[in-house]
Amino acid sequence: MDNNPYSEPESDIAVVRIERRFYAENHPTPADTFLLIEISDTTLEQDRKQKAAAYAKAGIADYWILDVNKRQVRVFREIVNQTYQQETILNEEATLFLLAFPEIEVQISRLFPF
């Protein structure tokens, strides 16, 4: 990820508002983005520092990193002054809920099937 003010970080998974016509020519805005997920094998520090900073600055309220080496999920939330104030590390026994859809339960163990 470079320092170009016009660059857009690309997450591995994005849960966004469905708006087919709009996205044909533009990317979803932070207001259209419910969740961004990075799958991290060798890029954990970059995902934790550079990408988290960029996503917080953009106003992405819910950002997860799936750490495949430790089989954990790092959850970033609560943006204050364009910085995430909360980083929670959850292990395979935990259950997680999306901020935008609290009725959807995600079992961490199902994110790491093998």
Rank of each mutant, 00 (worst) to 15 (best):
52 A>P: 06
19 E>C: 14
50 Q>C: 01
64 W>R: 02
60 I>V: 15
16 V>S: 08
94 A>H: 11
52 A>G: 05
32 D>C: 09
69 N>F: 07
25 E>A: 14
108 I>L: 02
61 A>S: 13
87 E>F: 02
48 R>T: 01
80 V>D: 08
81 N>K: 11
71 R>V: 01
44 L>V: 03
84 Y>W: 11
76 F>G: 11
101 F>S: 03
35 L>A: 03
77 R>M: 04
20 R>T: 11
20 R>Q: 12
63 Y>Q: 13
86 Q>V: 15
15 V>P: 01
24 A>L: 14
62 D>N: 10
71 R>E: 15
79 I>H: 01
57 K>A: 13
102 P>A: 12
56 A>G: 10
26 N>Y: 14
12 D>I: 07
70 K>S: 15
2 D>P: 03
86 Q>S: 15
66 L>I: 07
18 I>P: 01
73 V>R: 03
106 V>S: 05
91 N>L: 04
97 F>C: 14
103 E>I: 05
81 N>R: 10
8 E>S: 11
46 Q>R: 13
81 N>M: 04
84 Y>P: 06
40 S>Y: 03
5 P>D: 09
86 Q>P: 00
18 I>D: 10
2 D>H: 07
53 A>R: 09
67 D>F: 04
15 V>E: 00
30 P>A: 04
20 R>W: 12
43 T>G: 02
67 D>P: 02
54 A>H: 08
87 E>C: 15
59 G>V: 05
23 Y>H: 03
27 H>K: 12
